[in-house]
């Protein structure tokens, strides 16, 4: 599948934003975070900023962005519509929670309840994003049991790491405990991604050129001549190919640089004094951002669509 930059930015940025706000809601409701004005302002600006950046980016690849509101109507059948509804709906509890925190200096009690509602809404939105892909039977790489858990743990890990940087910047003691949760989520992200790739490698495809043409009973089928001499929309959108050599290098970067290194840096931040701990955590944030970008690029680039069977693939 063609890895569109707008969709990569959308899924990674909004995932981190929803993850961050989900953590603010949970920790706030549990009374583990002070309703500090500066912390609230920066955290919500970061969270909402990433969400809005992602959502705006997702409309960049639309043919008619001005009609995007129509996408809220078909939630009965469409995961994309559900994602839109959930994304918009999340702004209500999350916005009220932010307001309670920043304006009234409250993030527990009734405000905490709003926080929990916002967290739940954030999780539902990320799950809907994942299901847009996981529900497509035409792309076996996405129609995987690991797609949904992958999106969930990566959103919570990236949002969690951002919050960890804020906890260190505000020198909050909970940072030393929360760091272990972030490390766990980074480790889970790494594990889920490895399991995803293992399942992908073990899957030998459910459709063949023979089943696509129905000519299997006559023998082995191969494309002799494409319908046209030049490329077309289907080949550009669905026929993206990535060299195995590059894919392996990128996978290594995503695993080691994207998930492994941030995990170790988070561990390192626990033993380093004040400012240094924050510095390595910010480095971890940058590495995770790059790693998620690469991981998401591969998620698209490595996914094969069954329509390619009509354009020369034997088995997808």
């Amino acid at each position: 599948m063609h890895p569109a930059k707008s969709v990569i930015l959308f899924t990674t940025a909004s995932g981190a934003g929803y993850g961050l706000i989900a953590w603010l809601g949970i920790l706030g409701a549990l009374g583990l975070l002070p309703a500090d004005l500066g912390l609230g302002l920066l955290a919500f600006a970061l969270g909402f900023g990433l969400i809005v950046l992602g959502l705006l980016s997702s409309t960049f690849h639309l043919g008619h962005p001005e009609r995007a509101w129509r996408a809220l109507s078909q939630w009965r059948s469409s995961w994309l519509s559900r994602e839109g509804v959930a994304a918009v709906a999340t702004f209500v509890p999350a916005g009220l929670f932010a307001l309670c925190w920043v304006v009234f200096g409250r993030n527990e009690g009734l405000a905490g309840l709003l926080g929990l509602l916002a967290s739940l809404s954030c999780l539902v939105t990320v799950a809907c994003t994942a299901m847009i892909y996981a529900s497509l039977k035409t792309i076996r790489a996405w129609h995987s049991r690991w797609t949904l858990p992958g999106y969930m743990v990566m959103a919570m890990a990236s949002g969690g790491l951002l919050l960890q940087a804020l906890l260190l910047a505000w020198r909050l003691p909970i940072g030393t405990v929360f760091a272990w949760l972030v490390m766990l989520l980074l480790g889970l992200s790494l594990a889920v991604k490895l399991l995803y790739w293992r399942a992908l490698a073990a899957d030998d495809g459910g459709s063949t050129a023979e089943s696509a043409t129905g000519l299997g009973q006559l023998g082995q089928v191969r494309l002799l001549e494409a319908p046209h001499s030049e490329s077309n929309y289907l080949m550009q959108e669905m026929g993206f190919r990535v060299a195995r050599k590059h894919a392996e290098t990128l996978r290594r970067f995503a695993i080691i640089g994207g998930f492994g290194a941030p995990l170790l840096l988070t561990l390192l931040s626990l033993v380093l004094p004040g400012g240094f701990g924050l510095a390595v955590t910010l480095l971890a944030v940058a590495l995770l951002a790059a790693g998620l970008g690469v991981e998401r690029w591969l998620f698209f680039a490595e996914a094969k669509h069954v329509v390619t069977l009509y354009y020369g693939e034997d088995r997808v």
């Binding site: 599948m1 690849h61 009609r67 847009i132 497509l136 289907l234 669905m238 329509v307």
Partner: peptide
Amino acid sequence: CIGCKLCSWACPYG
């Protein structure tokens, strides 16, 4: 139609 292209991803037949 908003031109999101999701329908073309969902169709196995191109």
